[in-house]
Design a protein around this nucleic acid. Structure first.
Lengths: 249, 249
DNA sequence: CGTTCTCTTGACTCATCTCAAATCTGGTGG
DNA sequence: CCACCAGATTTGAGATGAGTCAAGAGAACG
């Protein structure tokens, strides 16, 4: 694992943690939280850092507090597919399994709230609420992965890219506890390459599709870091997505 | 259609159930099992039956005892993507959520060991082992879904079809608690259409790729119901899959 | 301010899809 | 038991969406 710096500045007590109500600890009682307080530690990585490699043994598991990380799978010849996008409150790691199945990279500077795996497994064994929440989150991720499979297997390039923006808009809105409608704006954490790996296209095709969406006024790029959506419903229609509101993990 | 027995014949006490050691109940104690015995019921469906529709409220959750079912997602214009394949011991349903996110169909005649959802949720709340096993299984399914995403997003048609056979060979072997090597044979439950929905191709392309694999001697069809693999390692190589041994869910 | 990396755009290629027709399979009724 | 039919599968020929290769424009960084 790459070197990382202590994040003493952002260390907080669980009770006032920004991801308190969405993370794996969301269902924990005050007692359980104060136990977590004693076994947690913060770790930070810089944008671009490889956090872990597929097959590696993770000594820690934990939650994203701030920043974005990607999970991806790489083939022998270099083809790569992103298989997970970790935003604040998302959980990284597999209690009960040693080896990590996928590569983990920091897409932005990122801070994790980590637990040594044995500590966490021990805590799960004693805290019903922790395991219950982890199951909920894992089931949600599974649903998201399956929606993502529909995108990868059956959507056109144009639908894929529109869907990507729909997903990002939704996940961004979800962090602020609402759902996107009408006009909105969200940060674009991913490079063209990461987007291409997300939707199973080449960078060139992603770039062309983004240009097309801009020409049609479905999106507008601001500062190269933000996406402004004038009419979310129009984008949604272009994505060929059902209206329900999945949020891909 | 593969032979199968009427539910009444296979109704058994949990202790002697064929999926006892892999299903969601695998970690349960004798006490817990005898409780499950009192709340379970068997349900059967015929090949081709739609077991449930996306968006529907499932009143029951449960395990496949024998037979095969598919989970799939359908777009408004009819495009369809399979997102899960349920074999014996796999679990269907989402404790804690009402609506089903995907369509469920019987690929062969199939028997489930079902629980009314409230009963099951109640039992989970009391039985640590049930929830623990469900979490394990869900995490495994998530890994499998993610490998599947690599297939959908980045593999060629030829690799996709070879991967499909690798996956089926592995899952079949896993049911008998071993891993495939060298020569082997397994049943082919899926139609060309289901295979196409699995790997995100058209039936024509799947058919062409199967013909190519046969010409090259990588597989051999027997009775149109079984696939004989003369050399599993050669097939594996063609699938461009890592050697580790995932088994897609 | 040059160097490097990312992104965009263009021209062309090719893998997979589409449309169409032939063949095979299993089931049905005479 | 056999002829026929409907559906599943295979195969062919041509169309096309996305990939590849290449060049130029923009940003980011020192």
């Amino acid at each position: 694992m790459l070197p990382f710096s202590k994040a003493s500045e952002i260390t907080t007590r669980c009770g006032s943690c920004p991801i308190r109500f969405n993370a794996v600890c969301a269902l924990c009682s005050p007692d359980e939280l104060s136990h977590l307080d004693t076994i947690k530690s913060y770790q930070t990585y810089s944008a671009g850092d490889q956090i872990a490699w597929a097959g590696e043994n993770m000594t820690h598991v934990g939650s994203v507090v701030s920043g974005v990380a990607t999970l991806s799978s790489t083939m022998a010849d270099g083809r790569r597919q992103m298989v997970g996008l970790l935003l604040p409150s998302d959980f990284l790691g597999r209690p009960g399994r040693d080896a990590l199945a996928f590569d983990v990279m920091a897409a932005t500077d990122i801070t994790f709230c980590m637990f040594r795996k044995p500590d966490f497994e021990q805590t799960i064994a004693n805290s019903h609420n922790l395991g219950r929440r982890l199951l909920q989150m894992t089931l949600d991720e599974l649903d998201a992965a399956r929606e993502w499979m529909l995108l990868l297997g059956r959507k056109t390039a144009s639908e894929k890219v529109a869907s990507l923006f729909v997903i990002m808009a939704r996940r961004n809105a979800a962090l602020q506890r609402h759902t996107p409608t009408g006009e909105g704006i969200f940060p674009l954490y991913l490079t063209r390459e990461a987007m291409a790996d997300y939707v199973g296209l080449t960078v060139e095709t992603v770039s062309r599709q983004i240009s097309a969406l801009r020409r049609e006024g479905l999106i507008e790029l601001r500062d190269h870091r933000f996406v402004h959506v004038p009419d979310f419903e129009r984008l949604l229609q272009r994505s060929a997505q059902e209206v329900d509101g999945g949020s891909l993990g």
